[in-house]
Design a binder for these strands. Sequence first.
DNA 1: AATGCGGGGAC
DNA 2: GTCCCAGCATT
Length: 360
Amino acid sequence: MARPWSKSSVTPHPPAYAERLLAWFDLHGRHDLPWQHPRTPYRVWLSEIMLQQTQVRVVAPYFERFVAALPSVRALGEARLDDVLALWSGLGYYARARNLHAAAQRCIELHGGELPRDFDALLALPGIGRSTAGAILSQAWGDRFPILDGNVKRVLARHHGIAGWPGTPAVEKQLWRIAGSLLPDARMADYTQAQMDFGATLCTRHDPACVRCPVQDDCVALREGRVGELPTPKPGKPLPERQCHVLLSTDTQGRVLLQRRPPTGIWAALWSLPEADSHADAQAWIDAHVDAHGTNARTLGAIAHGFTHYRLTMLPLHWRGVAPRNAVRDAADLRWVSRDELQSLGIPAPIRKLLEADLS
DNA sequence: AATGCGGGGAC
DNA sequence: GTCCCAGCATT
């Protein structure tokens, strides 16, 4: 199918990424956020700080109150810290408010009571990092600097198919490079806002609206069906480890002794191998339930299995040629099972795998 | 490279 | 309950 741009344009190239994003922004972007009217450096700065790790809906009322009480850099710098913190109360991350206050005072000392229009000078102010400095310069002045917040990370990770958690320096470095390579020649303020609106309302974390996406044609994640798995989520805390022995008893006819699990909990009511916490417990169980003729167990290879809330390592112990005791024949939850019967029983997958590997 | 910082929203 | 959010500073 012909691309719209390949018909009439003298250039064979599709519109640049930024151009498509800006066209989307004009139609579907957010144009009435409190800090956009008027879009002064002070208001942009304040909004960017408030919006760090904080959602737009939460920030809006705080922004209105704050800027009404302290309408300028100078007013902020000359206010008492307690009053600044009171205006911040409830927003969280209070270091942001302390940094804001200190930065305003430094602007009074060094920059005539205004925010400097200089990347390094902004970066030197407390609370302003690389992304916030870029956001301020681009939004307040239209200067050509990239941003890399959570929205942009998610969008670029998908659009360029970047795997790996964006919190790692290697991935972040790559994303910064891409972000810097996509900047338009004009409309930087709108472009910065467009990226954030795009990430917040269309290329969302869950259920992004790829059908309506202005850059779907060259989205790697969409093409490769990886939208749902990008960006790679932050690695969670390691799950607790549990370990147990599983007791494999086989008789001379190749039958195996299975035990029905309790009706609740993991693998409820399935047929599995008896479990024991320790080697000694395992031996005691064997002595009590089968006649192993005093033979020792053979150790089989460990089985690792992951649950949602812990990881289980099963250490199989194998007694061969054991004979059933009379009592065992009557126990309701114990059963000698031939190989052929295994497939008709409900058996946990890792246990079944062990049995099939060992009995074959 | 990993953590602390905070409250709220979405699921 | 979990995970994430218009990040940055500190270790």
